[in-house]
Design a binder for these strands. Structure first.
Length: 271
DNA sequence: ATAAGGACCTGCTAGC
DNA sequence: TGCTAGCAGGTCCTTA
C-alpha cells in the first residue's frame, strides 16, 4: 500500500536489476492488469525490448524502453515488485512477470488486483493519468499552496490526498504532515493562516524526504520482505496510533474519518 | 466546480 | 475453533 516514499524505494532498490535488461518473455496472469491493450498485444510489444531507465513520478513508475516506447505502472493498494530467479516458486496473485534474458524475473504481485500497467508506443500520449499530477512534494511552493489549498473549503487532509494538487501523498503521510505542521487535518483549506501554509509547505517536502531516507534498504532486506520492507514503520508519529499518547504532549490521539479515510491527529498540538 | 458514496478486490483481524 | 463484520497505506466513477 505504497505512497511516494515506498514507490521511490521500489525504484531505487530494483533499478540495478532492471535497467539494462532485455525482456525475453512476458507472462500475464490477470488480463485486466494491462489497462490499455489486449494482453496478447502487450506481450508482443514488450518481448525482446531492452529497458534503459526506471523512473518515478508521484506514485507512478515508468520503464523506459530502448525503442522509445515506455511502460507506466501503478501499484495502487497492494501491488509489489520483486526480482527473483526464474526457478523460485511463483507466489499467489503474481499477476504479471517480465522474464529477462539473464534468467531473472521482475514479478508484479498484487492480491487485490487494483494495480495497472500501460504500454505506450514511442511518442504516444501517456493516458495513465501521470501527466495530470501536481508537483512533486519536494517542488511544492507557497504559491502552489496559496492557489490550491487556501482557495478551497474542503478539509486539508482531502486536499493533500488529491494527486492533481500535489503528487505522491497518501493516507499515512497526509496525517504525518498535518501533525508536523501543527494543523488539524479537518481544517478547511481556506482557514489556514499564511504562517500555517508556510509550515505545511516545509513539512510536505521534509516528511516525504525523510521517509524516503528511512525506507532505503539493501536489496537483500527488500527481497526478504518481498518488497514490503517499509511496513510497520517505527518513525510514524500519528498514523495507526489513535488512542495512544501523543509523542509531543502525551494526550491521547484522536482517531476519526475524513473523506472516508481513517485519520489520526492530536487535538492539542494541532489547531 | 465540489462532496459524498459506491465500486473495484482479497486478506487480515477483532469480536462474538 | 469458527464465523463474520469491518477495515486496509489508492483511485475512478456516478450522483446530487
Amino acid at each position: 500500500m505504497p505512497e511516494l516514499p515506498e514507490v521511490e524505494t521500489v525504484r531505487t532498490v530494483l533499478s540495478p536489476f532492471v535497467v539494462g535488461q532485455t525482456i525475453a518473455k512476458v507472462t500475464i496472469n490477470l488480463p485486466k492488469v494491462v489497462a490499455n491493450l489486449q494482453p496478447a498485444t502487450f506481450v508482443q510489444k514488450m518481448t525482446e525490448q531492452n529497458i534503459i531507465n526506471f523512473t518515478r513520478r508521484g506514485k507512478f513508475l515508468t520503464l523506459h524502453l530502448q525503442s522509445g516506447a515506455f511502460v507506466v505502472l501503478h501499484l495502487r493498494m497492494t501491488g509489489t515488485l520483486t526480482v527473483e530467479d526464474a526457478d523460485v516458486p511463483i507466489e499467489k496473485h503474481t499477476n504479471l512477470i517480465l522474464t529477462f534474458q539473464n534468467g531473472k524475473e521482475l514479478r508484479f504481485v498484487d492480491s487485490r488486483g487494483f494495480g495497472r500497467w500501460w504500454y505506450f508506443a514511442p511518442g504516444q500520449t501517456d493516458t495513465s493519468g501521470q501527466n495530470l499530477l501536481g508537483p512533486e512534494p519536494s517542488a511544492v511552493t507557497i504559491k502552489d499552496l496559496q492557489r490550491k489549498i487556501a482557495t478551497r473549503k474542503t478539509a486539508l487532509k482531502t486536499l493533500l490526498l488529491d494527486q492533481h494538487l500535489i503528487a505522491g501523498i497518501g493516507n499515512i503521510y497526509a496525517d504525518e504532515i498535518c501533525f508536523r505542521a501543527g494543523v488539524r487535518p479537518t481544517r478547511p483549506g481556506n482557514s489556514l493562516t499564511s504562517a500555517e501554509l508556510k509550515r505545511l509547505c516545509t513539512e510536505i517536502s521534509a516528511v516525504i524526504n525523510e521517509f524516503i531516507q528511512f525506507h532505503h534498504v539493501p536489496f537483500a532486506v527488500y527481497a526478504q520482505s518481498k518488497g514490503t520492507s517499509y511496513q510497520n514503520d517505527t518513525n510514524l508519529r500519528v498514523y495507526g496510533r489513535a488512542g495512544q499518547p501523543c509523542l509531543k504532549c502525551g494526550r491521547p490521539l484522536i482517531g476519526t474519518r475524513i473523506g472516508q479515510r481513517s485519520s489520526v491527529y492530536c487535538e492539542y498540538c494541532q489547531r
